[in-house]
Design a binder for these strands. Structure first.
Lengths: 183, 183
DNA sequence: AAACCGTGCGACAATCTGCCACATCCGTGA
DNA sequence: TCACGGATGTGGCAGATTGTCGCACGGTTT
């Protein structure tokens, strides 16, 4: 197999710039060529010059949802593998995305290895190997809380409401240290 | 019984007898021919005599999960329309089911009209509504657990080890219903 | 058969959560 | 300036949840 003529092109569509940059670097480090689009519209203008082989799409962005990109990405490259990656995951959007041809669907936060594992998972190559340990539930909860807290500019009361959690409970969780993962 | 040759055959696979009976009556009243299976295994034995055109499958049953029936149902009737209907809904099982060829996926409780609408529903539309609130921590935990659980092919002990969680605790969490997010 | 492994479940103590009750602060508008 | 609404820190307490142990049962492997 000719594997080194060209690197696989990986398109990241997400309006969270920090997230995109971090993910892009991690993907690049693994030998892919990457491009970032901050919106669905911007992604469309890039398709002519950057024909992606892999893509991650966010759902909740300014303008169109990443889901609307799926048919268009598949038109450009029918073999493209698409991963929906969103902080606003739901069953109904997951069902829609898969029906439209997305390869898989993940809720943020997810680490790079899991992202790539999901994208490789549907490849014709039957690579059946479970990678590293997943995040512990405690760690996941911490990440999620931090994310929502940031979205609410550090407002604890608002965050507790958004999470459907009692403010007192959130306060107590925040006082504790983030859970550590050991390897 | 006089069997109407034009009536569509509707198979209900669910171990909740009350639920099955109520749904069956409602479906029958709308002109379908119905059959009930209390387990995946029982459903298989019926396929020769009752070739369904439509089916609802439960996930959490004694014995095999309804998801395992999808390929076999499609073998008997490639045009069958399958709706996953479960009280233990999660994104990872939804993705799995749709990939295997299920038509749609609904969380219980759902009324008869919703069920038939999903089964009759045609093309996927990219304009699904996206949640405006992030998942609650409880919901996120449920989804994460389900994801890891599918990655470990339903092995509870292995999942508990991977999550750094006591097996007993995981068992208890799995017995509970996932938290319903309002929409 | 014996040694394992995964699973389901009872019991109990340690912890955590939901919830109410204050007591501060901090802007904003009357 | 003074209320008023909203955010925040804390204490307390009953009830829910978790971490552990233990035991039984049914498969698989050796």
């Amino acid at each position: 197999m000719d594997t080194n003529s060209t690197a696989l092109r990986f398109l990241i569509v997400d309006d969270d710039e920090t997230f995109s940059r971090v993910l892009s670097r991690a993907i690049k480090r693994r030998g892919y060529e990457t491009a970032i689009a901050g919106s669905a519209e911007q992604a469309l203008t890039m398709l002519e010059t950057f024909r992606p082989d892999l893509a991650t799409l966010d759902l909740k962005m300014d303008g169109a949802s990443g889901i609307t990109l799926i048919p268009q990405l598949k038109t450009v490259n029918p073999d493209i593998r698409i991963l929906i990656l969103t902080g606003y995951a739901s069953i109904s959007t997951a069902v829609e995305a898969i029906k439209l041809g997305a390869t898989d669907y993940l809720a943020k936060p997810a680490d790079t290895d899991q992202i790539l594992a999901k994208l490789k998972g549907a490849a014709p190559d039957p690579d059946v190997e479970i990678a590293d340990k997943p995040m512990s539930v405690g760690r996941l909860e911490w990440e999620h809380i931090q994310k929502v807290l940031t979205e609410h500019e550090g407002n604890i009361s608002a965050t507790a409401r958004a999470l459907g959690m009692h403010r007192r409970t959130l306060q107590r969780k925040l006082q504790k240290r983030p859970v550590r993962e050991e390897h």
